[in-house]
Design a protein around this nucleic acid. Sequence first.
DNA 1: GTTATTGCAAAGAATTTGCATAATC
DNA 2: GATTATGCAAATTCTTTGCAATAAC
Lengths: 143, 143
Amino acid sequence: LETFSTIAIPQRQTRQRQVILEELRAVTSHPSASEIYEMARKRLPRLSLGTVYRDLDQLTEAGEILRLTGNGRQTRYDGNAAPHLHVRCIHCGRIGDVNGATMPKTDLDVQAADGFHILGCEFQFTGLCPDCADIEHLGDGQN
Amino acid sequence: LETFSTIAIPQRQTRQRQVILEELRAVTSHPSASEIYEMARKRLPRLSLGTVYRDLDQLTEAGEILRLTGNGRQTRYDGNAAPHLHVRCIHCGRIGDVNGATMPKTDLDVQAADGFHILGCEFQFTGLCPDCADIEHLGDGQN
DNA sequence: GTTATTGCAAAGAATTTGCATAATC
DNA sequence: GATTATGCAAATTCTTTGCAATAAC
């Protein structure tokens, strides 16, 4: 479950958080927490996965990175916090950037059922990453 | 991970699958698998959660229901398979219907980075469900 | 020196799976 | 009668948490 953004977050400059941020910013692949863990572990062999999750949370709250939850299972992270659109691979869940396109104009003044109060909206493209596109061609949709 | 839709699904008419479908169609609340389990268990006390997951998968493949994966953690299901838009509560992840609005027009002919191939898009509103709106007002964003 | 942060390991939540039994066609 | 589907329990996957030790300010 998501949480409301908290107000003030005490933040010390730690080597772990710095390396995690650098590694995430060094790639365009929108890695998952465990992928970031593997990346950062090359520089900090004693790093723990719990720390990765905690630091990614904190960097998200601080607005340094983006947390991408539009997938099914795994949360992915984006070192580029500037607004831009994403494609999600419908097969493996990987995320890609779509820099040319802009968020479609949407009227938020619509009526939701069941007493929901609308505040914003989310949009993403769906498609296939290069790897899964290959598999589809080979296997013809089977798996 | 998601899977490509399979081609032919042998399907026998079972009481479990029928009850699950009926219960899901009886509500507008977009319940999770375990919520559906609790609902259906009142009529089928020996029902198991594994069966609920398997039947929900199968009903999804058959196009009888919708699987909603736009949340962070829990998958939710919609007994109304007709195309319509949703609001997701940013606090608790619950889903509501937005029947008036239509999917914003989008140009799918855009260039994705990293070799992704765009096939479609997804859109949903975000906001607060009635319960979480109350909490926000009381606690003023704290939690 | 105080307090945030870490590593570790264990707990949690959501979902999937193996397998013998039961039900459907 | 053959085979799909079920119940049960154990296994997986992803994420969170408690706590003593450590590091930042």
